[in-house]
Design a protein around this nucleic acid. Structure first.
Lengths: 232, 232
DNA sequence: GCAAAAGTGTTGTGTCTACACCCATGT
DNA sequence: ACATGGGTGTAGACACAACACTTTTGC
C-alpha cells in the first residue's frame, strides 16, 4: 500500500496552524487572524498555511508565522495534534497539524492589520475546528506548567516572583500563592537569583529580587513518577 | 493560501502507522510487520497504510489494523505524533501520523504469517523512522501509567495484584512493589474488588483476591497539579 | 509443622498548602 | 510612624516507599 499509486492521487491537502499564546495584560491571549479568503472569509482563525515540499511541519509553521504575522520570537514550539475530520474544511479534503507556540510576556511583535491578540477566555467564533485546537493548547500549557519548566517560555528574561505569579495565574486561570510558587520552583532548581533587584514602586515597598529560569529549553522537572523505580 | 490551488497538486501522501503494544510473556511487545514491497521490502516495520478519502486518521488506522493484521480488540488507542521529515520515505513525499494502540494481556489475536510480536527491548532494525516512533510510544505509555488509569488497557478483565504487578513491571521496565501498587491504585479508586478469588498454585499459597479496573476509559487520576487552585 | 504466596500495619521521609511573622522601602 | 509590597519560618496534611508481620493455602 505504501507503493499503491492510486492513493497518491487521492492524497489530502495538508496545512499547519499554530496556537500562539502569550500573557498580555494579565490575560492568556492567543494570536488570531481575520481570514480574507474562503472558506470562512471574514471569520477569525488561527494563523495557518500549507505545507510546502521539502520542509517539515515545524519548519512550515515557523515560516508561516514569520512571513504572515511576523512572529519570530517564539520561546517554545511543540506539536499538538493532527485533525482529520473529512468535513473540517468545506472546500476540500484537508488535514491540519496544530502547533503550540509561546511568546514571552516582554516581547510585543508588530502585527499586520488583520491580526490581533484575543483573550482565550473570550474567543470569537473561530473558523474550522480551531476553537477546539485552542482549548487543547491551553490544556497542554496548563498541564506542563505543573510538571515542566515551561514557564520560561512565558516569562521575560528577568522577573520578580510576583510578576511570575501574575503569569502563572493568567495561564492557569486560578490564583497562585507567591510564597509557594517561589518555593516549588526554587526547590526544583528551575529558578536562579540574578542578584539584581527591582526598584520599589511609587508607594514604597520592599524591592523585589529578580530571578531567571535556569534553562531556556523544555525539561520535565517533576517526573510525576508515583510508580518510580525502587531505590535499591 | 488555503485556497491556493497550486498547493493542492503538491500535497504529500499521508499514511497512518500504529505502535500496538501488549505485555506478553512478561515483556512489553510490539506488533511488527515484515514488508513485502519497497521501500524497505523485507524489513520490519510498524503496521501502516494510506489514509483514504472520507475517513479520519483514527478510523484509518483501525481499518488497517483490522484488515491487515486482524487486530480489532484494541482496548485503547490515541494519537502520538505526525512525522514529516521530507526524506523519511525514499520513494515519495509522505507524512505519517502515528498512533499508540494497546491490547489486553489475555487476548491473543490470530496473526498473519508476516506479522509478529517482538519485545520492545530487542527490536530489529525498523523501516522509516519507525524505531523512534516505538520509543515515543513506550515513553507515552510509561508516563500515563503513573498519572492515568491506562493500566486498564493492558490488563485482563479480572486479575490479582501480583498479575497486575507483572504487567506494570514489564511496561515500566523496572520492578514494582505489589504492596504499594495495590495501595496507590486503591487509594485513587482505580481498582475495585470483584469479590472472587484465584485458586492457589500447585505449591500452595494464599488465594489471591481478584480486582478489576473501575473504568474502561482513559481518565487522568493524578492531576499532578503542584500548582493547583487554592482551596478557598 | 513448614513452605509458599497474598495482604496489612506501621514507620519514616519528603513535598506541598496555609498562615503567621519579619524585612526593606517611600511618605 | 505607618503603609506597602517582598520574603521567610513553621506547622499540619498527605502521599509515598520500605519492611516487618500476619493470613491463608498446599504438602
Amino acid at each position: 500500500m505504501v507503493s499503491d499509486h492510486r492513493t497518491k492521487t487521492a492524497a489530502p491537502a495538508h496545512s499547519v496552524a499554530a496556537v500562539v499564546l502569550a500573557v498580555r495584560e494579565a490575560q492568556l491571549q492567543v494570536l488570531l487572524w481575520e481570514r480574507a479568503l474562503d472558506p470562512f472569509a471574514g471569520a477569525w482563525s488561527l494563523p495557518d498555511g500549507s505545507l510546502a515540499p521539502g520542509e517539515t511541519l515545524e519548519q512550515s509553521i515557523r515560516r508561516h508565522l514569520a512571513t504572515k504575522v511576523d512572529v519570530r520570537e517564539l520561546s517554545h514550539i511543540e506539536q499538538l495534534e493532527t485533525l482529520s475530520e473529512p468535513a473540517r474544511n468545506p472546500l476540500r479534503w484537508e488535514l491540519v497539524t496544530a502547533y503550540l507556540g509561546l511568546v514571552p510576556a516582554d516581547v510585543d511583535p508588530a502585527l499586520p492589520a488583520d491580526t490581533r491578540w484575543q483573550p482565550v477566555d473570550a474567543l470569537p467564533a473561530l473558523a474550522f475546528d480551531h476553537a477546539a485546537i485552542v482549548l487543547a493548547a491551553r490544556e497542554r500549557l496548563r498541564a506542563k506548567l505543573s510538571y515542566t519548566n515551561i514557564g520560561f517560555a512565558l516569562a521575560p528574561s528577568a522577573f520578580s516572583i510576583s510578576e511570575l505569579r501574575g503569569l502563572y495565574r493568567a495561564a492557569l486561570g486560578h490564583d497562585v500563592s507567591a510564597t509557594n510558587l517561589q518555593r516549588v520552583l526554587l526547590r526544583r532548581h528551575l529558578l536562579l537569583p540574578t542578584g539584581h533587584r527591582r526598584g520599589p514602586g511609587p508607594s514604597g515597598g520592599r524591592p523585589a529580587a529578580l530571578f531567571r529560569f535556569a534553562t531556556p529549553r523544555l525539561e520535565v522537572t517533576d517526573p510525576f513518577a508515583v510508580l518510580r523505580p525502587p531505590s535499591s
